[in-house]
Design a binder for these strands. Structure first.
Length: 523
DNA sequence: CTGGGGACGGGGCCC
DNA sequence: AGGGCCCCGTCCCCA
C-alpha cells in the first residue's frame, strides 16, 4: 500500500517517516517558517486532536451514511476539505442544532474511510485496488488534493523506464515459448523475507527529478513490471488449463500483430519511432542491478508479491502499459481490457453541473482522462481508446477495430467496393455502368471507360456486396493463417485471386473446415 | 509545400 | 444496454 502523507502546511510539521529518516527530498525552507513566528507542530497537533475527537465521537456534528455504514465527523472539517460538503453544509448551515446527515451510495465505506482518514490525518492510503474508486469518490466530493495524488499515483505507475520495458519484452517473449525464469520469483521471495514495515510513506515528487524520484519511478516501474509478469504467468497457466477455462479467449497467443493493430495511440507511437519487437531475454546482470536498486531504495515489494493471487497486482493497470502490450500481444491486451472492465469501480459518477438552482446531472467519468459521458455504455466504448482493445478484426486484412460499425465501414469501402463511384473519374457508377476491380485485398469500382484505359480485369462474377457484409458477433479470435500472413509482410497481403470475404467475429465455435471455406484467399 | 480526399477514430445521441 | 447512425477531427497519401 502506498501512503501519501501530505506535507502539511507546505512542508512544515509532519514529515513522513521517509523524510524523517533522511530519505526524503531536500526541501527549501518555507518562506513562512520564520523563527519565533510560528510553532511548526501546531497544525499537526490540531489535526491530531480533531482526529482524536472524531474517534471518540466528541463534538461530531455530521453523520455520513455510506452504504449503511455511519461515519461521524465534524462539519467544519468536512467543509474545509471538500467542495461537495462545502456545498452541502452551506445549504444546511442554518440548522446547526441538528447533526447533518449525508448519505452516499456512490462509493464504498472502505473508500470513504480512506478519504476521511486523509481529511483528519493528511495521510492518504492508496493501493492499486482502491486508487480508482478513491479518485472517483474524490472527484464526486470535489477534493482536488486527493484527485491530484491519485492522478500522480496512476501516472507514476505508467512510467515504465527502459529497463523495465526491456524486462517485460524479454518476459513476454519467454512466456510465448518457455517457462518463466526461476531467478525472478526467487528474487522476490527473498525480498518478502526482508519485509519489515507493511506501510510506507511517500512524498509526491516535484517536477524536477532528484534522488527521491528514483524511488518513486523505480517503484512504479516495478509495479508495472509486476503487472506484466503477472499477466505473463497467468497466460502460461491459462494455456496449461485451457480446457477448464470458462471464458472464451482468443488463442493466437504469441503471434504478433501487424503494426496497425496496436490502437491509434500505440499505432502512431510505433510509426513515430517504434521499438524493436525483437528482444533478448533478461540477463542476470539486470536482475542483479535491480536487486541493488531495491536495496538502495528500500522498496517495499512484498505487498505486491509475485504470487498470482495478489489482487493488488492484478488490478493495477496503466494506459502506457496497455498500449505497449497490445502492440505486441493482442491477447494480453484483451485480457487486460477484460480485467480492467471487471475491476473497474462500479461507480464512476461525477456531477456535471453545480450551477446554482440547477440539479447536478450524473455523468460517468473516465478513470484515465477527464472525459465524461452520459451513459455507462459510452464510457465502456470510450475506455477502448485507453485499453487499446480492438475486438472487431477484419477477416480480409487483419486490421482490427474498436467498433463493429468501423469494421463494417472499413469492409464495405475497402473490401467490398461499397462506394458506387468510379475511383478514377469519380463519376457515379452502377452495376451496369461500372465494374469492380480487385487490387490485393482492396476492391473498388471503375466505370467501363476508366476500366478500359487502366486495362484492369474486372471481377463481375459472384460479386455481391450484400452477401458479404460483416457479421455482428462477439468473438475476437483471428485465424492463425491471417496472422502469419501479416507476419510475413504487410505487402504480401496482396492476393491474386478474387476475394470472397466473410467477416465474422465469433469463430471460436466455427469448425476448421468452415474457416477454410470462408477464407480461401489467405493462403 | 499545399490542398484535397480517403480512411479512420471517437463523441453524441437515437432507436 | 447494445446497436447503429451522424458528424467532426485527425492523419496520411497523392497530385
Amino acid at each position: 500500500m502506498w501512503v501519501w502523507e501530505a506535507a502539511s502546511g507546505g512542508g512544515r510539521g509532519a514529515l513522513g517517516p521517509r523524510q524523517a529518516l533522511g530519505c526524503g527530498r531536500n526541501r527549501k525552507p518555507s518562506p513562512y517558517s520564520l523563527p519565533g513566528m510560528e510553532i511548526s507542530s501546531h497544525q499537526s497537533h490540531l489535526l491530531e486532536q480533531l482526529n482524536e475527537q472524531r474517534k471518540q465521537d466528541l463534538f461530531c456534528d455530521c453523520n455520513i451514511l455510506v452504504e449503511g455504514k455511519v461515519f461521524k465527523a465534524h462539519r467544519n472539517v468536512l467543509f474545509a476539505s471538500s467542495g461537495y460538503f462545502k456545498m452541502l453544509l452551506s445549504q444546511s448551515s442554518k440548522e446547526t442544532s441538528q447533526p447533518t446527515i449525508a448519505t452516499f451510495e456512490v462509493f464504498s465505506p472502505e473508500t470513504f474511510m480512506v478519504i476521511l482518514d486523509f481529511v483528519y490525518s493528511g495521510i492518504l492510503s492508496l493501493t492499486g485496488q482502491n486508487v480508482i474508486e478513491v479518485m472517483s469518490a474524490a472527484s464526486y466530493l470535489q477534493m482536488t488534493d486527493i484527485l491530484n495524488v491519485c492522478k500522480t499515483f496512476i501516472k507514476s505507475s505508467l512510467d515504465i523506464n527502459e529497463k523495465e520495458k526491456d524486462h517485460y519484452l524479454s518476459l513476454s517473449a519467454k512466456s510465448a515459448s518457455t517457462e518463466p525464469t526461476p531467478a525472478r520469483p526467487a528474487l522476490y521471495r527473498s525480498r518478502r523475507k526482508a519485509k519489515s514495515n507493511p506501510r510506507r510513506s511517500y512524498s509526491i515528487p516535484d517536477e524536477k527529478p532528484n534522488g527521491n524520484e528514483n524511488s518513486w519511478s523505480g517503484y512504479s516501474s516495478y509495479l508495472s513490471s509486476q503487472v506484466i509478469l503477472q499477466r505473463a504467468e497467468t497466460q502460461l497457466s491459462k494455456r496449461g488449463r485451457k480446457q477448464g477455462s470458462t471464458r472464451k479467449r482468443r488463442k493466437h497467443l504469441g503471434l504478433s500483430q501487424s503494426r496497425e493493430l496496436g490502437g491509434c495511440k500505440s499505432d502512431r507511437a510505433e510509426r513515430a519511432g517504434a521499438s524493436d519487437p525483437t528482444h533478448s531475454p533478461r540477463g542476470g546482470e539486470e536482475a542483479e542491478s535491480e536487486a541493488e536498486f531495491d536495496a538502495e531504495n528500500d522498496v517495499e515489494r512484498d505487498e505486491f508479491g509475485y504470487h498470482p493471487g495478489a489482487e493488488a497486482v492484478r488490478k493495477r493497470w496503466s494506459v502506457t502499459q496497455l498500449e505497449q502490450e497490445l502492440s505486441r500481444n493482442p491477447e494480453l491486451m484483451e485480457l487486460k481490457a477484460e480485467e480492467l472492465y471487471t475491476s473497474m469501480p462500479t461507480i464512476l459518477g461525477v456531477m456535471s453541473s453545480w450551477n446554482e438552482g440547477e440539479l447536478p446531472r450524473m455523468r460517468f467519468k473516465c478513470p484515465f482522462c477527464t472525459h465524461t459521458v452520459k451513459r455507462r455504455a459510452d464510457l465502456k466504448r470510450h475506455l477502448r481508446c485507453h485499453t487499446g482493445e480492438r475486438p472487431y478484426p477484419c477477416e480480409a486484412c487483419g486490421k482490427r477495430f474498436t467498433r463493429l460499425e468501423h469494421l463494417r465501414n472499413h469492409f464495405q469501402t475497402i473490401h467490398q467496393a461499397g462506394k458506387l463511384i468510379c475511383r478514377k473519374c469519380k463519376r457515379h457508377v452502377t452495376e451496369l455502368t461500372g465494374c469492380v476491380v480487385q487490387q490485393g485485398t482492396r476492391r473498388y469500382r471503375l466505370c467501363h471507360k476508366c476500366l478500359a484505359e487502366a486495362n484492369f480485369d474486372s471481377i463481375p462474377e459472384d460479386f455481391n456486396p450484400s452477401e458479404h457484409s460483416p457479421v455482428s458477433s462477439t468473438g475476437n479470435k483471428r485465424p492463425k493463417r491471417a496472422l502469419e500472413e501479416e507476419q510475413k509482410s504487410d505487402e504480401e497481403t496482396v492476393e491474386e485471386e478474387p476475394y470472397n470475404l466473410v467477416v465474422r467475429h465469433n469463430n471460436d465455435d466455427i469448425p476448421e473446415e468452415v474457416k477454410e471455406k470462408v477464407k480461401p484467399n489467405l493462403r
